[in-house]
Nucleic acid binder design. Sequence first.
DNA 1: CTGAAAGCGCTTACAG
DNA 2: CTGAAAGCGCTTACAG
Lengths: 353, 353
Amino acid sequence: MAERKVNTTSTQVAKLAGVSQSAVSRAFTPGASIAESTRRKVFHAARKLGYQPNAIARSLSTKRSKIIGIVIANVTTNPFYPEVLDALSRRFQQRGQRVMLFVVTRDQNLDDILPQFLEYRVDGILLTAATLSSAMAHECARLGVPITLFNRSVPDAHASSFCCDNIEGGRMAARLLMESGHHQVAFVAGSNDTSTSLERERGFREELKKHGLEPCIDMGEFSYQGAFDAARRLMKLPKSPDAVFCANDIMAIGVLDALRHAEQKKVPEEVSVIGFDDIPMAAWPSYNLTTIRQPIERMIDSAVNDLLDRINQNTIAPKQELVRGDLVVRSSAKLPSGLSSGYVISTSETRNV
Amino acid sequence: MAERKVNTTSTQVAKLAGVSQSAVSRAFTPGASIAESTRRKVFHAARKLGYQPNAIARSLSTKRSKIIGIVIANVTTNPFYPEVLDALSRRFQQRGQRVMLFVVTRDQNLDDILPQFLEYRVDGILLTAATLSSAMAHECARLGVPITLFNRSVPDAHASSFCCDNIEGGRMAARLLMESGHHQVAFVAGSNDTSTSLERERGFREELKKHGLEPCIDMGEFSYQGAFDAARRLMKLPKSPDAVFCANDIMAIGVLDALRHAEQKKVPEEVSVIGFDDIPMAAWPSYNLTTIRQPIERMIDSAVNDLLDRINQNTIAPKQELVRGDLVVRSSAKLPSGLSSGYVISTSETRNV
DNA sequence: CTGAAAGCGCTTACAG
DNA sequence: CTGAAAGCGCTTACAG
């Protein structure tokens, strides 16, 4: 193992500046009581020696690492998550926090991952597209490390959670399809152990029931290819659907491609397709997807604020927040009369539950 | 500021186990000399107290953080980078390293970012889709922190770099277009300060020159929308191109959409389109993009190995490695006779330069 | 405002 | 194999 070159320390800077080591520390601590003149001396010496405070040592001493642990899944399969990761890490960066990242697969157990964060004494943990065992939730609570879930509902009162109102989103999709006169509808689920897919299905089902309909369900594994295959199966059914609602956009796109390129169906004339998320691709002319938009920026702002607040004040209770999505009407689904493409039905509001 | 709850320390475990604090430390250090029986005693006590070693303290003491700093740009605009990030972080995780992530915009100056890594005494730095000032390269060299660039050629001998052979890739694209008889070709560049775009253009140009052709150039800003707009401009030219080579796939897809949906052009009958990267979307039936595949996995393996090796042995010199891409023949470009779609022309090999 | 000193929680020569 | 002790590089009460 190679020796790491030795960095300049505060003691060396102190010597050169002719002050105490504490003075050097104070010079680099915003708000510390130190004379402007000594601060200048310190900075001058520091600059000369190429000194930079050691954040590891600071963390040990302050018991604050200024590191947030982020767990994310599906980064390569669903363009929604790169958006989330990008927004999240920017926010944390702006707020002076570092990000320690773990990329996981959907089935990976977090019970092996979170301890790696705890080892580094992260100040807080943000999980996205990942679920938390209640054992781990308790462990983090015991250690005083706040956890926030993004886009997953909470299994446990020890964590905060920020989600789109998936049930209402499912209802919105169903209402649109009913208003434009569909009779045979299908739902392409993501997976049956994920709150997003389950809740979207539930809202969809509930609203259809009011019209005496029941969707047929197939599974798209939250991926383009999974949904592509699901669409082909659906079209082989004796009563093939005239509308398909998908648990997310990337699956809706898979369905669209299958319908057009493998099944020779016209969208939306023969089959309507609705997605969920409003990823950038949904607006591309090849897809023009009607979808439920998740207000990412707003959700992320809330999630980041909540986590940072709970880090700074451990008396704040975790909160569960639901944000309404917006129906974005494009041209992959037949329109009810009176509605035109390009229209966004904005019902966005935030609720606490 | 809230008090962070106190974690169990090795001293407390030592007391409960009836051994010295050093023994506790040794119990958790693989390879340390300790009797199996005392290790068991320690583990038992540790389990009882919910003890987990403090990696921050360990880092301070060993002068190794086991953290790799990763900088990445374009995560939301180019699906290639989520792939890279996913592969990179998995590799590092497997090798027992943590990842500290910075997401930047393409124009953001790294000179403000890297010091934040150095503050935390990261063991090494990996930059992707980002360039390094030679001042920072020197600073890292001075501190003994190895840097590796991924997908950017190196500005400085202090860093390693792992790239696809972009020049050869550009040549391959040109050869295919020449063999299938195109006469008026265009190149949609990414940006003029990025080695990938510049090199792909250069290879493309060189090969065309042999046939007495010169491409007309437009700028796509490395984005779908930028390339979409560029395609529209190109088609308005007096001599509009019958083939477009793009500096990456996401731009090729933008061009494809513009040609079909805004310009009513048939691809490849009227215009051929070639991309670079082979992102998953390139294989979707809506696009079926002919492209130069970057062998990500292989490039990442080399990059990660190189960085880890240089961390462990600071006598190893940085290296510059070039990996050949493969031409993936699909149906967005006219085929020379004798070649059929679905064919991959694999010339992959690795070279040191 | 300033310095000396204790302490954060580990690792690791050193002596046994 | 084991323990006592020094040391990693900071922060921060404490006394002045």
